[in-house]
Design a binder for these strands. Sequence first.
DNA 1: ATAATGTCTTTTATCGTGAAAAAACAGTTT
DNA 2: AAACTGTTTTTTCACGATAAAAGACATTAT
Lengths: 300, 300
Amino acid sequence: MSKSNNVYKDAYNRCLRLLDETRSLPSEPELGTLLGVSRTTVRTILARMEETGLIAWNKRAKTVLREPRPDDFFPEEETDTLAEIIERSFMRRLLAGGAEAGMQINELELAREIGVGTTSVREFLIRFSRFGLIEKRRNSHWVLKGFTRAFALELTEIREMFELRSAAAFAALPQDSVVWGDLDRLEDDHRRLASEIATRFNEFSELDERFHRLIHRASRNRFIVDFYDVIAMIFHYHYQWNKAQERERNEVAIGEHLAYIEALKSRDLGKVDAACRKHLKSARQTLLTSIPESRSTQKS
Amino acid sequence: MSKSNNVYKDAYNRCLRLLDETRSLPSEPELGTLLGVSRTTVRTILARMEETGLIAWNKRAKTVLREPRPDDFFPEEETDTLAEIIERSFMRRLLAGGAEAGMQINELELAREIGVGTTSVREFLIRFSRFGLIEKRRNSHWVLKGFTRAFALELTEIREMFELRSAAAFAALPQDSVVWGDLDRLEDDHRRLASEIATRFNEFSELDERFHRLIHRASRNRFIVDFYDVIAMIFHYHYQWNKAQERERNEVAIGEHLAYIEALKSRDLGKVDAACRKHLKSARQTLLTSIPESRSTQKS
DNA sequence: ATAATGTCTTTTATCGTGAAAAAACAGTTT
DNA sequence: AAACTGTTTTTTCACGATAAAAGACATTAT
């Protein structure tokens, strides 16, 4: 089957949404940067849009002929990257229980189960290994280390070390740095979300990531910034599978974030440290309580 | 060509060295664990040894017939893993100059140049990416971030954070922990090396790694332990290419290590902190001075 | 009964291949 | 001449295939 054309399909769908807003499309290079794809893909998109009567295309002129209908879109599941598909399947297996520490991971079996080639699975596992949940036995299988209490503690230990340092660096940033604007915007988003918490509480996780990434970036250290990928990944799946008291938890977290933001703005290192510690402590608590006991008895 | 049999060749060579010491070889499973390979490989080795008249092999009886000759060994270069070959080639390119930050890395070109398949190169680059020296552009090339002064500073910042914490954890370990024995042995090795520094100074890098890994392990945190891979990798190549004042540098480092070990044994956190800081500071200095100016002007 | 050997099966490591996507080049249009 | 479109080349991504290596099962020896 070689390679799926999900890049094209995803860009096509996004391009359809663009159609709503204008009478005619911009130049090919411009569309390319807009959609984040190459001109080759842009032209494939335009060709198809012409074919289905969405636009009239003649060199520079790309006139919109009609509004896109729901059936013009490619199905969502066809727009996913192979890597995303594999990750989802793998994480489902991992969290669906029965995935005890020490268990062997079989590339071939995984590949067959998901319905993809072994190469893609191998590459996924290599990439995934930096999250510290699996480990390779040379010339042999991978070993699952398990999503244990020990893992959560090790993860949060680093997180706290890194974030405290980043927060201090953030507060020390010059007044004219663009981050203060970013922070103001984030503060607004927090307040808006707080006022509509009853209906939008599930949007918090996205906001959470944006906020913490902004802070980590202040460290100007690639290892700290990159480590947030590990945290984001864990929290992403954690949010998906632990919905208990989600609303309450998020409401509390928003409050802590706002206090944290206030502290950053005060540029008082003592206050920053205190607010940061407070939030991280409750974040750790949330993560820990979500780990089932059956998974928490193994040692690292 | 599919897969090279370097595992077999390497194990074969190591098995030859075993031949010197005994009149007959142990059982197949035992040999397997001894050499770190499967029984399948062990049997291939035995078959060849029988063929070349090194041993007489009949079921359990594996009698040594003659001493191995130099030409019994497989050439060293045939015992390397593909991953090692690729890493070496890649690092040579990287350090040989002309590798400026921002430069594109081409999988196909690399594969052709080294004479391996693209898959192996891809997998190497994915594994290598955690060192923070390269970055992937989705659906496109890799970008070299460059071995710059900024990189060295970011690396050492994390290293110092992690090692200070690990050293403190080490000193707090109970008296009956096995690490104290390990530390004693390392101290002896340091003293021995110090007394023969004139001839053996180049053995320091291996000792250095053993020492720091022991300390990092005391953190009982996989992220800290794993991060030492990054440091070890950088220092490994750094030692290879910067030979200026190697003897003097290593002599100083041994002294610092011994003071550091003394501090750990005293279990006085203040002393540990001071000794650790002092050593890390000079390690950073050594690394920084080895970065050519041409490579130190880019920003991260 | 335990632990070895002999044999067969499965999995991993690596390559070549081909379609998707990017990138480079050449020719047009404003 | 700068920016676009048309065309060709190159590279990335993913697969199936195959030898090496690991692992499982059956048999035999102590």
